[in-house]
Structures are given as C-alpha cells and as structure tokens.
Design a protein around this nucleic acid. Structure first.
Length: 218
DNA sequence: AAGTAACG
DNA sequence: CGCA
C-alpha cells in the first residue's frame, strides 16, 4: 500500500498558469526595474549570521528583511537605505482579484533562486495580520515546493510550481510550514540568466473593519 | 527564526 | 533521503 498523501490545510490554493507569457514578460521587466532601484542582496540568519542561499529585495511600503538581529519588516533597503520602490500595478490587480481582502498588500518580497538555492521549511509569522493570504507568483525555472501543516512535524506534500503559477496561502494554510526543496534548471526561457523569481505579496498591518477569518486562531 | 551538519 |  502506498502511504496516504498529506493534504495541505484548508485555504491552500494553486492557480496553475494564471499569468500568460506576455504578462510574465511584463512582470519580469517590472521586477528588473525594482531590482535596479533596490538591488538584490543576500540576507543572513538571526543569531548565527549564516547567509541565505536565496538573494532578496522588496517593493512596497514595507519589506521583509533578516539579519543577525532578527526577522522584521522595515520601510527601507538594508544596504542602500533607500525606500523600497512601489509594487508594480499588475501585482496589485492580481491581489485585488484573488486575495479576498479589503486592503492592498504592503509588502512584495522578491526572492531570486539560482539553480542551487533552497528555502527551508518555515512559517510566515512576522505580519500582524494573518487574516490576509500570502499570494505567491512564480517566474522562470520550475521549483519543487513543499507545504505541510501548522506544526513542523506535520506531514508535507510536494508540488512543482512553474512560471506563471500563482499560489495562495489563505485560511488555515496561512500558517502552514512551506519551503522550496529544489530548482529545476533550464526549465523556462523567461529569465535569460536562468533561475527562479518568486514574488510574495503580504498584508503586514491589520485593517480596521477586516472580517476575521474563523479558520485562523486569533 | 526562512540556516547547516551529522547521522542512520 | 529524512530527521534532529
């Protein structure tokens, strides 16, 4: 008998091929402009200072950063000190269509994965607002994404995410452990230098009047 | 702490 | 490879 496969928590949604090629190219170019204003840098882990394999930047009024002091959101680039550039309008429209939340995202984390980059299993816990989903857009090479439950030991499921796929971590899945186990090199022609870009839109602050999601504890 | 190392 |  094969073991039963783990079901991700309720509220996990994959929208395969949501962005067509032309939209992916436009988004790629918009992210190029973001990176020109806010260069990719390599964050480090709290306490240990060990570098991530992924390089990061952000757009939006707040950006997620990590350094020896900890994880946090802040309004400016940790290397240049400049404010983060604005979130490209196409992403704001995507949020409006899919997020089912009455306010725009404040943060768009841009993660760039070279072929050997990984992201360990983790939860997104640095936001005050868990009632809004995390909306993720994949561009470039396909990855092996893994999602579990709200506890680290919960069973996990792996799925491939390709360029143009959109994933939503909403409801109970908002607090699910997730990560990226591998990148499949040369599986997309979108990025000339190869690799994968992941864009994650997040609401950081609570909004007065937002309806609490019963699926979220708290 | 979103990290790696080590080990069975 | 999965787990600690």
């Amino acid at each position: 008998m094969t073991a039963p496969s783990a079901s991700p928590p309720d509220g996990f949604r994959v929208v395969p091929g949501r962005l067509d090629r032309a939209t992916q190219e436009a988004l790629r170019d918009a992210i190029r402009a973001v990176v020109a204003a806010a260069p990719l840098y390599r964050p480090t882990m709290p306490r240990t200072g060990k570098p991530f394999s992924v390089r990061m930047t952000n757009c939006g009024s707040l950006g997620w950063v990590s350094d020896q002091a900890g994880y946090r959101y802040q309004p400016s680039h940790p290397v240049t000190g400049a404010p983060w550039p604005p979130i490209p309008p196409v992403l704001l429209e995507l949020w409006q269509e899919l997020a089912d939340y009455p306010a725009p995202p404040e943060a768009c984390l841009v993660n760039f994965y070279e072929p050997d980059a990984r992201m360990g299993l983790h939860q997104d816990l640095d936001e005050a607002e868990f009632g809004a989903p995390v909306l993720s857009v994949s561009l470039g090479d396909t990855c092996l994404f893994r999602i579990g439950g709200a506890k680290r030991g919960d069973p996990t499921r792996s799925l491939r995410l390709a360029s143009g796929d959109v994933v939503l971590l909403g409801g109970a899945s908002r607090l699910a452990f997730h990560g990226v186990d591998r990148i499949y090199p040369s599986t997309s022609t979108l990025l000339s230098q190869g690799g994968r870009i992941n864009l994650t839109l997040r609401r950081v602050s609570k909004v007065i009047g937002a309806i609490p999601d019963p699926a979220i504890v708290g």
